[in-house]
Structures are given as C-alpha cells and as structure tokens.
Design a protein around this nucleic acid. Structure first.
Lengths: 316, 316
DNA sequence: TTGATGAGATTAAACGATTAATCTTGAGAA
DNA sequence: TTCTCAAGATTAATCGTTTAATCTCATCAA
C-alpha cells in the first residue's frame, strides 16, 4: 500500500507537506498542491484509516444497532443510513440486537470495542441503551425521553384512524403486537386520540388479539387497524381462512408501507415513514454530537404519510 | 480511554510487558500476568484497534456486499454472518450494491477505503466483482466459477420439482425473475433436469411470465414453480384476483423459505437455504485467505431442504 | 544596511500496540 | 570465585498520519 511517505520521497519533499497539501490545512504553494495531488492519484494513494484514527482519535465509523434485521422495515432504515453515511465519508457497522435487551447491550459493547465514534440505536421495545463512552442518538418515538429523532408515530396513528372514521366506520378493532413497545403504543395512542367519541373502539394486543379477530367481527367490527404491515398480513391470512373478504366485509390497515403491503391482494392501506429524512437527521445529529457542536433539533419527529390502497372501503 | 501505558505505569512496569502478558506472547511471570489482567479489567481496558491495526496491518474488519438489503433473504444472511464474525472477534461492514454493477464496484471501493481485511460478496446477478487488493470470497451459485461457497441451488430446484412430479402434476409452469441471475438459472436448471421426460414444462421469466399465468392455467398447467417466495407471493396475489384457488386448482411453490412464506395463506411450499452453514463456511474461507493459509473446500455447495406446506397438493 | 514580515517548506513528536533485540538478575555448575 | 544460562523484564523502533513549532529565504520598508 502506498503511503504519504511514498508520495513525499517520490517528489523529494516531506510527509508533512503532503499531508498539508491533501488536507488543505497548512501553507503549501498552489503549484506544490497540484503536483502532490497528481502524484497521489497516479500512485493510487488511499489514506490509511488506522494511522489517521490513531492520531486523531476518530475512526470515522458509526455503529448502528437495530432490534431485528429480519423485519423488513429495519434493513430499509439501515440502507438509507448507510447511504447518508457514505456521502459523509463515514462507515457504518450494523449490529442486530436480536430480540433481547441483553443482546442489545452485547451489540453495543462489540461496536465500542471496534472503535466506533458514535452510535445510532433503534432500541429494543421497552428498553433504553446503557450510558456509553461515545455519543448515542436514539431513534424511537416521541414518548421516549431519549428520542433524538423518529417518525411521528402518534400523528401516523391519527392519520389512519381519521381516514377510517371519515369513510364511515363506527366500530373499530385496534390491534397491536406488544404494548411494551413505545412505538406501537404511540401508534395506538394516536389512533384513539384522533377518533370522535361516538366511535366504538376495542384495543387488543398480540397473539390473543389476533385470535379474537373473527369473534370481534361477528360483534360488529367493520375495520381492523394494526400497528404493523406484518400484523396486517397475519390478520389477512386468518380472514382468508375464515372466508371473510377484505375490504368488502372488513377494512384492514397496516403500518410502515413495507414492500409486502403493495404485493398483497388487496393491496394494503398503510402509513409510510419518511425514512430518508429520518436517516439524514439522525446522521446530522450524531455527527454534531461527535464534533462537540450542539446537535440540531433534538427530539424532533418527522411526519408520516397516509397511503390509501384497496384494503379499506366504505362499510356496508 | 485507558491504554496499555496506563496499566503499565499503574503497576510500575513497561508497556511491552503489559502487551506480552495480555497477548501471551513474550516471557512474563505467571504472577505478573495475573496482576496485569486484574488491573486491565479494573480499569476497563479495551485495546485500541487503530493502534493494533497500524502495527499489524490488519483491521479485523470484513466487508460484506449484498445486492439488495430490502430482499428479506439478504438481511438473514447478513445477520448470520455477523454472528459468525462476532464469535471470531471480527467486525462486519455491510454495504448494499442496490441493483447495479456500478453500485457494486462503488461499494467495494468504499469498503476498501475503510480498510477491510477481506471481502464477502454476494454479487449482482450477471456480474463478477473486479479484482481487489484484498482477498474476496464470492457467495453465489455453483455455475459461477468464482463461487467460494453457496447453497446448492440446482439441487434445491431438483428437490421441489421432484416433489411436484411425485404428487402427480404433469404440466408445470416454471417462473423465474431474471434469466441473467445465475442463481435463478441454476434453480430452473435443477428443476428441469430432475423432471421425467413425460412431464410438460413451460419456462417463463419476469413480468411477462407473471402476466401469462392465467392463460397458461387455462391451457392445463396445474403447478407453478417459482424461483423466489417473493415471486410466488405475486403469483398468489394475481391468482386471488382471478379467483383461482391455491392449491385446489393450482399448486404453487417458492424458494428460500422467507418469513412471509409461513404467514401467507395458504402457507407456501418452498426450499430453505442452510444460511448458518453457508455463513460459517464463508467466514472460514475468508479468514483463511486473509491469514494466507489454504482455504478449506473452495467452491463447495450446501444442500437445500424441502419445506412442504399447504400451497401444494395432488392435482384433481 | 538592517530588520521585519510572511510564504513555503521542514522537524519532530505524538497517537497505541507490537516485537525483535537487549539488559538485569539470580541460580547452578565448574 | 567465576562463568554460563535462562527467566523476566526493558528498550527502542515501527506502523501512517497529523500538527505545533521551527527553519529558510526572498521581499520590502526604513
């Protein structure tokens, strides 16, 4: 590998001048800068990050911890954050906290050992990351006091509930995966708080809730609002089995606009996160924290967008 | 951050002794080793990777390039590889090559700049990674001469085709996404080569193939074999729209045993990769290459496993 | 002529870990 | 007593980059 010294001895100058020229920091003549740049390109010079990290105390690598990479939402976030990081010459080490708070702590520790400058954490439901020796930015939801930036889950819940109310449904079932999840709780909260008082609302959670679906429909529920496209897919599957047509007999909504939601039949009405915006803000915040400058707009939430498809209809 | 020097001055010895004690390399008395270990733990010492990398020329970080993180198969592979790497004290930088060969080259370059010791590449369909200054292990399929390890896609195709033939289907439609993909071609190849000569087989690709599904069914096709669960889901969706029941009128199979395949209704008959085994072998191969020792079993394929569910049935 | 000034370069130290070479000490042998 | 030997430690250099401090000139003003 070609180092700064190779370029220097090649041009009969010292390493310091090369460093100054390439970083644009010291005083180097225009002419010299040109020649150094040209020679560096010719030799295919790539700065050695280890050397730089050792001197500067920064590795230029961020850690990203996600609760479950097999949930299609998270790879999308990871992908977007990676792109955003690339643009700033940063690397992203992705870790999966696989369902448990203990795994989350272990993942954080591993990333620290690898020398990350800062951490982006989408926390396990119901947990907060332990204090860390490097800056941490949490991506969760507004009810988490640690939240650095996130989608407006409350607002998203309100959007979809209002849509369902507007098209005439009067008896709803809200179905969440786990009330321990702040995100899902906020979504449910957003739904309930946006609904007029004359609408009857049942809230159920988890597998029990899923199992209760046919019964509730027989009791008059005409719309099922879930906190995730994955849950909606499961509901849809159980409705198919029970021969209950969507949306003719019951309307169904998801959350997060995953790719399956537009492949399903009927295509699913859902709410989309502005993943790009969230990723950009998260990176902006963590880089500011690392640089020691005041991070912009801590705790801000990014509006969600209602995506109306064929799984919701006027009740009959 | 506490360094080796802190421990040394703390115990009134030199850094070299601490390094020797912790790595078990030089000659250090048992007693001294004990004391150094104890003090290191107390102070919460974590080796600085930049220092080590600078001296040793190794960063302990591998790059993993995948074609599309939003395809649920790849996060699963990434997750498994990360786990395997963790166990060996290695870090994994994940990059997404997002659908194009150009993106793939760019991703490889970025990972190189970040100083990875080696690369694991699941290549874009129809491409081979450019030659690299660090070892590269390709995870693709047996027809790729560069393949270091992969699932036995041909064998997997044979498994599922044989199953369909055995339960009595005599007119099949094989549906692939893109013939340029070596993986998908091998799967189709495996299917066709395993089928008896008296079975009628149509092979179609892409969106045109998908559109032709109802027509082919009217021409007597009783089973549709796809090269991906995602394609199967799309087929299923179009069959639903056309009111063609699965598996009563037509059997349907996928590939890769993604999580959606067991959520769908009917649950999808598919073929599973042994992702853990592939990940373990891939890491073993790349670490051997990096160490300069001969890599074990280059080009081996890992058997796939048939997963029979409710989307396939005896034709009527 | 002397001094001040500043552009343009160099020197040297530092970051943390590793390791070959060297030094110190005590024990045992002759 | 002197010599040998090895265990147990230290010394010093090295990896590549950055940067504060310093040096060398040429230019220009007084």
């Amino acid at each position: 590998m070609v180092s700064i010294k190779d370029i220097a001895s090649d041009l009969g100058i010292t390493a310091a001048t090369v460093s100054n020229a390439l970083s644009g920091k010291g005083r180097v003549s225009q002419d010299m800068v040109q020649r150094i740049r040209a020679r560096a390109d010719e030799l295919g010079y790539r700065p050695n990050l280890a050397g730089r990290a050792l001197r500067s105390g920064r590795t230029g690598i961020l850690g990203l911890v996600m609760p479950d990479l097999t949930n299609p939402l998270f790879p999308r976030i990871a992908q977007t954050i990676s792109n955003e990081a690339d643009a700033r010459q940063l690397g992203i080490l992705i870790a999966d906290s696989r369902g448990s708070a203990a795994e989350q702590s272990a993942a954080l520790r591993r990333l620290l050992n690898l020398g990350v400058d800062g951490l982006l954490v989408v926390p396990q439901k119901g947990t907060s990351p332990d204090p860390m020796p490097v800056p941490v930015a949490v991506i969760n939801t507004q009810s988490d006091p640690q939240n650095a930036v996130s989608a407006d889950h409350v607002g998203g819940g309100a959007l979809i509930a209002r849509h369902i109310a507007e098209i005439g449904h009067r008896h709803l079932l809200l179905l969440g995966g786990d009330p321990v999840s702040e995100v899902q709780s906020d979504r449910i909260k957003g739904m309930t708080s946006a609904l007029p008082a004359d609408i009857q609302v049942d809230v159920l959670w988890g597998a029990d809730g899923l199992a209760a679906v046919p019964e509730r429909i027989s009791q008059g529920v005409t719309a099922i609002l879930t906190t995730s496209d994955l849950i909606a897919l499961q509901v849809h599957s159980s409705l198919l089995r029970a021969q209950i047509p969507v949306p003719d007999r019951v309307s169904l909504t998801g959350f997060d606009n995953m790719s399956i939601s537009s492949i399903m039949h009927p295509r699913l009405t859902t709410v989309a996160q502005n993943v790009e915006d969230i990723a950009a803000r998260a990176i902006a915040i963590i880089t500011a924290m690392i640089a020691g400058t005041p991070p912009p707009h801590l705790g801000e939430v990014v509006p969600m967008r209602l995506v109306i498809r064929q799984s919701t209809a006027i009740p009959n």
